[in-house]
Design a protein around this nucleic acid. Sequence first.
RNA 1: GGAGAGGUGGGUGAGUGGCUGAAACCACCGGUUUGCUAAACCGACGUACGGGUCAUUCUGUACCGGGGGUUCGAAUCCCCCCCUCUCCGCCA
Length: 424
Amino acid sequence: MLNLKFIQENPELIVSKLKKKNFDAHAIVQQITELSGKKNEIQNQADQCKAEMNKISKEIGLLMRDGKTDEAQAAKIRTAELKDSIKQLDDDFARIELEVFNIQVLLPNLPSDLVPAGKTPEDNLIIKSHGQIPALPTGSVPHWELAKKYDIIDFELGVKITGAGFPVYKGKGARIQRALISFFLDQARESGYLEIQPPLMVNEESGFGTGQLPDKEGQMYHATEDNLYLIPTAEVPVTNLYRDLIVDAKDLPIKNTAYSACFRREAGSYGKDVRGLNRLHQFDKVEIVQIAHPDNSYELLDGMVAHVAGLVEKLELPYRILRLCGGDMSFTSALTYDFEVFSAAQEKWLEVSSVSNFESFQANRLKLRYRDEVTKKPVIAHTLNGSALALPRILAALLENNQTPEGIRIPKVLIPYCGFEMID
RNA sequence: GGAGAGGUGGGUGAGUGGCUGAAACCACCGGUUUGCUAAACCGACGUACGGGUCAUUCUGUACCGGGGGUUCGAAUCCCCCCCUCUCCGCCA
């Protein structure tokens, strides 16, 4: 959510910047400017009435104390009128405030100047490619066949007990999952992130705080009996740890990491990309989150990108980093880097991480602020997060790229975590 | 699920109708003292949204879990909701 004062003071800037996201903000900005002008006017009137009311009430109190009941009684006459005005003005104010808010949340975050123009994923900017695309031996197969061949992931069994998109990992399949989680968490800890184990369900306030509610309500599993939501990413509970807080500037940046299962309904996505591990309703992910000072949030973003790149390199997977174009970015992001690894049997790039700076967009909703060391005033912080990493597609690429006639080779760095060198 | 207690500023916690935006203590910040640390003492110390100067300042309003009501006036009284804690039951 963009800050209201900022919108009022920079209408043209907002309209021009949002063009990059292919979003025409003109009408919204104009509406907001008009409505908030009206809102301020009403607040002024209401405040004046209330000030007079408070004054009279105080006087009545004093008169009563002195036993001058007649005078007190006389003073009450004026209050009835004021009361009506106040009620009317307060109602109007609340209505307009809600109206402004409802429009305000329709505005996407402003893209950073680094964001390339464009409409579709084809317009994303490849800023780095790394690693060799492996030449697989003849007879190589995609990961869902490997999963069956070595009996490490059972998709049908998942269908039986839950439904499509809820695979069952077995034996070395389960163990490699656990190994990846531990590896990612250890790496994050070594990069200075504090490990958090968050709840997997969140309340409505948290869903709102990170922007899943109300817009993406349909994408989350909702336990209606208790009005709790299964988290789509650890970003939600972890970022919300800092909701409604004013943190010390000297504690920034705050760096947290968390493993969690992630739950996504993926309503409306069917067909080509959903085979095997490519798209699931439940999957595992290690997330990294930072709460930052606005002055250095982009440096920190680069650091997060470097961290994720390190992970993929250690796993010996060919990857590329994309800077997302305006049209492919999320509503809330100011700058996003996607990581894709090459899945050699499917012969395609799979997104395994998305690292973003949200600047103050999320923090404004969260009311997450830091106290400026000079002015001593609260200032909205910046939030950043990224996957480091999401497991399923990493696993898909590991299985496909490392298949040999003898079995699937485990990357060196994972062997101590797995306790085996081959899936055979 | 049954019964009870309670939600006040960063924390503990006082406050049952007006002089309470809120005592006291702790923490944080500034200062004095001190060889350093500590202690002691003094001072400042909420947030949001408005208005005027827009630089420091000044000023209005709102906020004591959320919403509604009573009253000239509500943290305080009434109603509804939410949450937390304790005991019992059930259970990993």
